[in-house]
Design a protein around this nucleic acid. Sequence first.
DNA 1: TTGACTGAATCAAACGATTGATTAATATTG
DNA 2: CAATATTAATCAATCGTTTGATTCAGTCAA
Lengths: 226, 226
Amino acid sequence: MAPPSLDLTQDTRHRLLEAALLVFAEKGYDGAGIREIAQRAQANSALVTYHFGGKEGLYREALRSIHDRKVSAVAGLPPPPEPGDPGARETAIQGMKDYIRAFVTDLMSCPAESEVDAAAMALIGREIQMPHPVSAPVLVEFARPYMERVLALLRILCPGEDDEARLRATLSIQGQILHFRNSLGFIRLLSGDPEFPKDLEALIQHFIAFSLRGLGLPEAFPPPRS
Amino acid sequence: MAPPSLDLTQDTRHRLLEAALLVFAEKGYDGAGIREIAQRAQANSALVTYHFGGKEGLYREALRSIHDRKVSAVAGLPPPPEPGDPGARETAIQGMKDYIRAFVTDLMSCPAESEVDAAAMALIGREIQMPHPVSAPVLVEFARPYMERVLALLRILCPGEDDEARLRATLSIQGQILHFRNSLGFIRLLSGDPEFPKDLEALIQHFIAFSLRGLGLPEAFPPPRS
DNA sequence: TTGACTGAATCAAACGATTGATTAATATTG
DNA sequence: CAATATTAATCAATCGTTTGATTCAGTCAA
C-alpha cells in the first residue's frame, strides 16, 4: 500500500480534515485512530487537539466540511412550484424527475471524481443509519433540504394524502436510492457482480420510473418510458 | 442505568452471545469491549477467548446465532410459483404482497417483543451497510433467501426485463423497507415526530402499494387499495 | 521578541489476550 | 461402591499494546 499523501500545498488543518474524512469513512469513528489520520495528512497527531480540541471535534468539523466540499446538485435545482401556480402539476412531475437525477448524482459522485468526496458521501450514509451523538445536528441540517423539496413536490402531486402518507412516500423514494448507495458493496457481494451497476443512466431511469409509478401518478403509468 | 442482567438460568456461553448482540448492535465492533460484554452477561471476560477464541470469534458466532433466534416470517411463506404454473401471475402478485408483509414483520420485530431480537436486526442492518470482513459470509447466507424470493417473483411478474433490471427492482423494493428500518432513529429526529410511524399496518400497505405500482403492474394501478 | 505552529516524547487509561489456580462434573479405576 | 483421574468451565490477576491526550523544546515568519 503506497502512502496516500494528500496535497501538501494545502494548510495542515485542511489536510487533516480531508484525511479524517477518508479514515472515518473507511473505519468508523471508533475504528479510526488519530495517529493514522495524522499520518495520512502528513501531520503530527498533536495537531488534532490543537486545531479541533480532540478527536470528537475533528469528527464534527469533518462532517461540517462536507457542506463546503461540493455544491449539491439538488441545491442548484429551481425551487418547487407552489400549489396555486399554473401548470403546477406538470412542473412538479418534471421537478421530481430532476430531483431524483440530482439526488443520485450527489450520492454517486463515486470514486472516479474525488476520493475524498466519495468518502464524504459514505460517511453521510453511515451517519444517517447510525448517527454518532456528536453528529446529529450537523446531519439534520444536511438532510433537511432534500427532505423538504420532496415533501413540497408531493404536496402538489398527492394533495389528497395526509402528512404521514406523504412522509412515507418521501422515505420510499429516497430510501431506495440511499439504500442502494449505502449497501452497494454488499449488493455486489450478494449478486456476484463486482461491477454492478454497469449502466448509471439506466439506474437513474429506473429510480424515476419506479418512484413516479409508485406514487400512483396516472401520467407516469404505464409504460415506464419517460 | 440499572444493570441489565440477562437470564442467569441460561449457560454462560449463551448469555455471552446475547450480551454480544446487545453491545455490538449499540456500539459497533470497534466501539464494543469484551469487558463490557462480559459484564452484561455476568461472566468473566476470559470466557470470550475460552468459548469463541477471541473477540472476532464472538462477533462471528453472535451473527450466526441470529439465524436460530427467530424463525423468519419469510421462511414460512409458500414457495413462489414457477413460470409455467397456471395462474402464476395472480399467485405471484399475492406472493409479493405476502412477502412484503413478512419482510416488514421480520425487520420490525422491534423492541416490544425482545430487546435482543431488536438488537440482532439492528446489527444486521449495520452489517449490510458496512460489512465487517469477518461477517461477509454469514451475511450473504442470511440475505440470499430474501433476495432469491423476490427475484423469483419478478421473473413471473416482469418476464420482459433483463436480469439487471430485475435486480434493480428487487433493490428498490427491499431498499425502501431496509432504509426505513435502518434509519428510523434519524427519521424521527428529522421529522420531529418521535413516535413515527404511528400506524404499522398503514406502513405495510404503503410498501405494498408503492412496490406493486412501482413495478408497473397494470393490476395494481390505480388506485392503491388492495 | 512575539505568537503561531511543529513534532518527538510521554502520559494514564482502556484494550484484547493470556496465565495459572480453582471448581464442578464426569470417567476411570481398584 | 469408593477412590482417583480427567476434563470442561470459570475466575482473578496480569500481560503487552494501543488509544486519545498532553507536554515541551524547538522552528519560523512577522
